[in-house]
Simulated scan of single mutants.
Amino acid sequence: MTEKITWILSHPPVSENEIQKVEEKLKVKLPSDYVTCVKINNGGTPQDKEILDFAEKEGAVFNRLLSYHPEKSTYILETYEDILDRLVPHVFPFASDPFGNFYCFDYRQNPSGNQPTIVYWDHEMTFIDPFYALIPVCSSFTELLSMLYSD
């Protein structure tokens, strides 16, 4: 998974307690492949592979993982709270693009599970229809990482 991607600009590593705090707040169990990656690459940016294609979006950008440290501007819980009024239930951001959009875990099909699908949340489309703003990307975090390529 992460061996194919070099991460840069990562924040200090994340502890199991920090991850559990987020899981408790969001009332979810985060996918193990994501947890393994974010523990080491917290807030990080892929160095060479930051582009992906999905649905009708070609050349989408994966900017960075959200941070698990409250003092960072990309803190995952603060980001979630900032956009909560525009999200549909059971959808949680975990990464961003550089344009104000987010990659999210989508637990709508299985709210108590730990294998959510990945959706792209388009912040401009959410004002038209919050459900239309969610574009399917893939079925897992590992698959998302495998989709990244260099420009």
Rank of each mutant, 00 (worst) to 15 (best):
M1D: 07
K4I: 05
I5V: 15
P12N: 09
E16A: 12
K21G: 02
L26S: 08
L26Q: 08
L26T: 08
K29C: 12
V35K: 08
C37N: 08
V38G: 05
K39S: 15
G43Y: 02
T45F: 02
Q47P: 00
L52P: 02
F54M: 06
E56S: 12
G59L: 10
A60P: 01
V61S: 10
F62Q: 01
N63G: 09
L66Y: 04
Y68A: 01
Y68C: 04
H69F: 09
E71M: 08
S73F: 03
S73M: 05
S73N: 10
T79F: 00
E81A: 15
E81V: 09
D82Y: 10
L87I: 07
L87Y: 08
P89S: 12
H90R: 11
F92A: 05
F94L: 13
A95S: 15
D97Y: 09
P98I: 11
N101S: 15
N101V: 04
F102T: 06
S112H: 11
S112V: 07
Q115D: 14
Q115T: 14
P116M: 08
P116T: 07
I118T: 01
D122V: 09
F127C: 01
Y132G: 01
I135V: 15
P136V: 10
T142S: 15
E143P: 02
L145P: 00
M147D: 02
D151Y: 06
